[in-house]
Amino acid sequence: MVFREMRRKKQVLSLAENIQVLNRGTSGVLAVSGDADYPYAVPLSYVYHDNKIFFHCAKSGHKLDAIARSEKVSFCVIDKDQVVPEEYTSYFRSVIVFGKARILVDEAERRSALETLSARYSPDHEQGRLQEIEREFKAVCMIELTIEHMSGKEAIELVKAKHR
């Protein structure tokens, strides 16, 4: 699959900047092909690790049904959204990734992904997060999104500010 090139080339973020956005973010929106071919986009917490995105969910639901039907998904993280009323614009920065999602079934893979995710949100509480993982492990589903394409964009005003 060939992914579209961004029209506004001056506003494209570099790969390093895209990764910084993904590492800064704490939530994003996963988009899947939902019921009756309606797009289904759901906000969720995630972790970016080794060119993959991991997130957790319950063991059943709309998101999992959609991924079972089609592994192709997109995921968007908004890093900046500053409305500037007097300029009739917003200073924005966001990244969108396209890739394939898979439900992790191997116990070691699930545990590793869950530990990576929990360490992202509770880095200073290792003992507590390991206890929580043990308590909830059987009830948690982990999903791995392997990134095939990533693009980021920011407002032209932010581009100009970088070059000043």
Rank of each mutant, 00 (worst) to 15 (best):
D35S: 11
A66Y: 04
E157M: 14
I19A: 03
T146R: 13
H149M: 10
N51K: 08
V73R: 09
L117E: 02
S27T: 12
L145F: 13
S70D: 14
L104W: 06
N51A: 07
Y46V: 07
N23Q: 15
G99C: 05
V73M: 09
E86S: 13
L158E: 12
Y121K: 03
E134F: 01
Y91K: 12
R111S: 04
R93N: 11
R111G: 00
T89C: 08
K72E: 13
Q127I: 03
Y40V: 02
M142L: 14
L145T: 13
L44Y: 04
V105C: 01
K80I: 04
F54A: 02
I53M: 12
I156T: 14
C76S: 15
S90M: 11
G61Q: 11
C76L: 15
S70Q: 09
R102S: 03
P123W: 00
K52V: 08
F92G: 09
P39F: 15
I156W: 06
G34Q: 05
D79P: 09
D81Y: 15
I147E: 01
N18H: 01
Y48N: 11
N18Q: 10
S94N: 02
S151G: 01
A119F: 05
S60H: 15
V77T: 10
R135N: 10
I103M: 03
Y40T: 03
L130A: 05
L64W: 11
R102P: 00
L117Y: 06
E86M: 11
R24G: 10
L130E: 07
G34T: 06
Q131N: 09
C76Q: 14
G34S: 08
D81F: 15
S90N: 13
H56E: 07
T116S: 02
T89P: 03
Y46P: 08
G99T: 05
H125P: 00
E136T: 14
Y38I: 04
P43G: 08
I53F: 12
D124Y: 04
L145H: 12
I53T: 12
K63H: 14
I147C: 01
K160Q: 14
E87Y: 02
G99A: 09
P39N: 10
A113F: 04
Y91H: 11
E109T: 03
V159W: 06
E71P: 13
R111E: 11
V42W: 04
R111A: 03
E71V: 07
Q127V: 04
R129Q: 08
V77F: 07
G28M: 03
A66C: 06
D35F: 08
K160A: 14
L44V: 07
D65Q: 14
G34I: 08
F92W: 12
F54N: 00
Y88S: 08
V47L: 06
F92K: 04
V73D: 09
K80C: 05
V159F: 05
I147G: 02
A36L: 05
R135D: 10
E157D: 13
D81A: 14
Y46M: 07
L64R: 12
E157P: 03
D65G: 05
N51S: 09
H62M: 06
Y48C: 11
S118E: 10
E136H: 09
Y46I: 07
I67R: 09
C57G: 12
H149I: 09
T116N: 02
A119S: 10
K52G: 08
Y91L: 13
S118N: 08
S27V: 12
V83L: 07
V84W: 06
F75G: 05
